[in-house]
Each structure stands twice: as C-alpha cells, then as structure tokens.
Design a protein around this nucleic acid. Structure first.
Lengths: 207, 207
DNA sequence: ATATATTATGAGTCATGATTCACAAAGTAA
DNA sequence: TTACTTTGTGAATCATGACTCATAATATAT
C-alpha cells in the first residue's frame, strides 16, 4: 500500500534544507522579528503556506535552524579533534574551529550571535531548549578533560567554558558590527594567547 | 511671559524617570518585541498616549533606557576608580563593579544583556548608535593605561577589552538564565583570576 | 476668578504579518 | 488512463499593537 517513498523523501528533504538555508540567511540579515515568513518563502521560492508544511510555526523554524547549525559545527569539531591527543590542544583547536566556522559562514555566525538570545519569554515557551546548551556541554567536556589531565590548572570548568565562549561570542559580535576595528585572525590568536597564559598549569603549585 | 517652570520641570522629569524605570523593567522581563507600549504605560500608571509626550517612539525609548543606565554605571565607576592608583587594580575593580551592578540591578542587567543586541536592521536605523560603544571605550581606556604603565603585558587593548566584556557579558547571561548552575561570586573571582593570570606581565620578557 | 498654557487621556485608526484553507498541481500505483 | 495520495499555492482571515488626536484635566499668571 505504501508506495516507494524514497524519491519523495529526497525531494522533501531537499526542500526542507532549502527552507532552512533561506531562513538562516534571512534571520541573519533581518533578525528574528524583522523577518517575515513571506521573506523566507520568497527566498526559498515556495509559497508562504509551504513553510507550514515543514515547520510548526516561526518559532519552530528558528529553533530548527539552530539545531542544524550547531549539529554541523559539532560534527566538524568531532572530525578534527579526533586526530588530536593532547587535551589542551583540543581546547585551543576548538577555539580556532569556532572562529573559522564563523568566518566562513557569516550568516550562521550572525544567527548564532544575534538571535542566540531571545527574550526570556521566548525560552519560557520552550523550557528545555536553550540553543547553546548542547554546544556549551561539548566545550565543557573538553575543558574538564584538559583540567583532569593536568594540562590546565584547576579552575571551575563550567566557568572556564563560559569565559571562553563569552570571549569568542563577543569578539565575533564586534567583528560583525564593525569589520574594520579588529580582524579575526588577531582575535583568534589573541583569545588563545590570553586564555592560554591564563590557564596553563604553573610549574610549581596546586592540584 | 514664560512662567515659573521649575515645578513643571520637576514633575516632567519625575514622570520621565518613572517611564524609564517602567520601561527597563518591562523590556527586561518581556524583551523588546514582547513589550507593548501599553504594558509600560500601565506599569508607569499613565495613559498610552503619555508615553509619546516623552519619547519619540518605542525605539527611542529603548535607546534612552540604555543611555540612562550606562551613564549611571560609568558614573559609579568614576567615583570608585578615582580612589585607586594602580591601573591594573582599576581594571580588576571595574570587573567587580560591573558584576556587582548586575547583581544589584538584575533588570538593568537583563536589559543590557538581552536587548544589547538588536538586529542589524535596528542599528542600521541609528547608524551612530551602538549602546555599548561608550562603555567599551571606557574599559578600553582602563586597559590601555594598564598596558602603558607596564602592569599588563603588551596585548592589543581593543582585543583585551572585547575579551573582558565578552566574558562578563556571557557569564552574566548564563547566570540570568539558570541561577543555580553558577554563582556570581565565583564568576567574579574566576574571571578576574583567569584574566589576571593571563595578563600579568611576566618577570622576564617583552616591551 | 478667569484666561491661557501645559500636560494627560484612551478610544479609535491603520498597517502589518502570521497562519489558515479551499483549491490546484504533481507524483504514484494499477 | 484512471483513481488516489501527497505536496504546493497564495488570497483571505484575523489578531495585534504602535501611534494619533479630539477632548479633558491641571497648572500658572494676573
């Protein structure tokens, strides 16, 4: 009775991807509230109503955009980091990767950075969903490993995670708002440098 | 002809302040787009139309809220920092002050943090206005002084400013979204600790 | 007390844009 | 080709909320 779904599924999947791409681009450009569903539909070359065949509503679409993007980012990190042994090097490489990704995908970067923070109201509607949480957990794991291996001095890993992410996040925000003031390469080196020096285990004390 | 305006001015000033306070509270709670002018009016106990006697429109009101708040924050910083000599101590004290202020004024903190980043569209409408810029300049000055005095090693001051602000900003964001995970005191100490160690001029090298 | 200037009111206007739904097109099986 | 299922369309609906404006209240001056 059920007929061959493969083609259909491919078609649907492709259209879904088109929609996500269009949505990311538009959200990045105009912000969440500045974006009309019809903008996204037009960019994806479908009718307005079609959007609702693939996503519950506008909120859902935003959330799905995040999920796709962060999943992509973490998958890329997995690949790269699996070739590295030293836990401290993993943390530093992660910093590089994050910045590189934002540089290569400025729309994604804008989405992460500008729309990351919806109002508390927004998140109240979706209590278990804070888009970055998965990503922070990933970084947290790297930090914890490096601390346990004694490659970073014994600081609170959650706090360290927060500081690293916050530094990157705001650096990239500044970069996006005024490309000229600061360049990404120096951000990459500078953040790593300061954090590294702030973190390396000293020859003498503690733990 | 012009009659005694003093009382009127006081009354107007007071009402303006009431409106700003109500707006900060409401924006903090519901976000910019989630806030209705009528919400603010109700909280300030005035009619909707009254809001427009004091502010151009909703955007203008948001901007004025920032201005008030950051001015307040910097004034407090001026007072405190003027009693301190050592430029490095100034930077570290500034970190303390920022966190203390956010702890004591969580509504203000939310406004700074959550509404800091309107969409690029928003800022395109007001090209010369990026609310944090003044504040970053203030911090930048402190960093530059500390570097020039040789109390911090020779890093790019703009980058350092960005990293400090980013760390604080995101730490406080996390704190606001999930009070339990991390506490502000440890954030304060941790950020200062890591940055301090990452920044102190080493006995040996450079500059 | 009266005239005038200032400030406040809130119901009504009006544009906007998310979402729906009756209908159309395209795909699949026989 | 025919019957049926899935997918797509976009005009119409409908709620929302920023902003206006005719009117009222309050303050000041003389």
């Amino acid at each position: 009775m059920a007929y061959e779904k493969t083609d259909m599924n491919n078609r649907k999947t492709k259209k879904r991807n088109d929609l996500i791409k269009a949505a990311i681009k538009t959200f990045a450009q105009k912000g969440f509230h500045g974006t009309k569903i019809s903008d996204i539909a037009k960019k994806a070359k479908v009718a307005d109503g079609t959007v609702y065949l693939y996503f519950e509503n506008k909120d859902d679409l935003l959330i799905k955009c995040f999920e796709e993007m962060l999943a992509d980012l973490m998958q890329k990190a997995d690949e790269k980091l699996s070739t590295i042994e030293d836990p401290l090097a993993k943390v530093l490489t992660f910093i590089d990767l994050h910045i590189d990704y934002c540089e290569k995908n400025p729309d994604a970067a804008k989405l992460i950075i500008i729309e990351l923070r919806q109002s508390p109201e927004f998140y109240k509607k979706y209590p278990n969903f804070w888009p970055v949480r998965n990503y922070l957990n990933y970084l947290n794991k790297l930090c914890t490993d490096a601390i346990e291996a004694g490659r970073i001095r014994n600081v609170n890993p959650e706090l360290l995670t927060t500081i690293i992410f916050g530094s990157l996040d705001f650096s990239i925000t500044s970069w996006l708002l005024s490309k000229s003031v600061i360049n990404l390469k120096s951000i990459k080196e500078g953040v790593a440098d300061i954090l590294h020096k702030g973190l390396e285990k000293e020859a003498n004390n503690e733990k």
